[in-house]
Computed example of a mutant assay.
Amino acid sequence: MEKRNIAISLPCTGEEEWQATREPLMSGWLTQGPKVAAFEKAFAERHQVPHALAVTSCTTGLHLALAGLGIGPGDEVIVPAFTWVATANVVLYCGATPVFIDVDPQTFNLDLEQVKAKVSDKTRAVIAVHLFGRCLDIDTLRAALPPSVAIVEDAACAAGASWKGRPAGSLGDVAAFSFHPRKSVTTGEGGMVTTANAELAEQMNQLRNHGASLSEEQRHHGPRPYLLPEFNLLGFNYRMTDLQGAVGLVQLAKLDGFIDEREQWAQYYCEQLSGIEWLRLPTVPEGGRHGWQAFVLYVDPAKAPMPRNEMMEILQAKGIATRPGTHAVHMLAYYRDRFDLKPDDFPAARDCNDHSMAIPLHNRMDAQDYAYVVEAIRQLG
Rank of each mutant, 00 (worst) to 15 (best):
P347E: 03
H47E: 06
I138Q: 06
D340N: 13
A7C: 03
N89K: 09
V119T: 07
T195G: 02
N237K: 12
R350M: 14
G257R: 12
S57P: 06
D345E: 01
A348V: 11
V91Q: 02
C270H: 05
V329N: 06
E286T: 12
V103F: 07
A302T: 10
A88F: 01
V115M: 04
G319R: 04
A7I: 01
L10W: 08
F236R: 06
V99Q: 03
R22L: 13
L227S: 00
I138A: 07
L92K: 10
Q293M: 10
E153G: 08
V55G: 03
R364T: 15
Q264T: 15
W292T: 11
L136V: 13
V299W: 08
E216M: 00
T83K: 05
N5C: 10
A212F: 12
A201G: 00
K122Y: 04
L171R: 11
Q218N: 07
E113F: 05
G28L: 02
F100L: 02
D345S: 02
D366E: 06
T56H: 00
S27G: 02
N209S: 14
E261H: 14
T194F: 08
N353V: 02
F39W: 15
Q251M: 05
A96Y: 02
D369M: 00
G14I: 00
T21S: 05
Y268T: 13
A144S: 11
A198F: 01
G287M: 04
A358C: 15
E277M: 10
F177E: 05
P98M: 05
V115Q: 00
F295A: 11
F108S: 15
I259H: 03
P105E: 13
G172H: 03
E261C: 12
P34N: 09
A37W: 06
L112I: 07
S170W: 09
L69M: 11
A201M: 00
V185C: 13
G95I: 07
P11W: 08
R280E: 13
Y372H: 01
A52C: 14
A212L: 02
Q244P: 01
H327A: 15
E199N: 05
N209L: 09
P11Q: 05
D121T: 12
V149F: 01
S9I: 12
V296D: 10
E286Y: 04
S27C: 02
Y372N: 01
C135I: 04
G61I: 01
V90Q: 03
L92C: 10
A150S: 10
A44G: 15
G188R: 02
P181H: 10
E113G: 14
V99F: 03
V99S: 01
P80M: 11
M365T: 13
I6M: 04
E271D: 15
I359H: 06
G325R: 12
D137I: 03
L281W: 10
E23W: 13
A212T: 01
I276V: 09
F295M: 10
V152Y: 14
P347G: 00
R378S: 04
V185T: 14
E40P: 08
V126F: 13
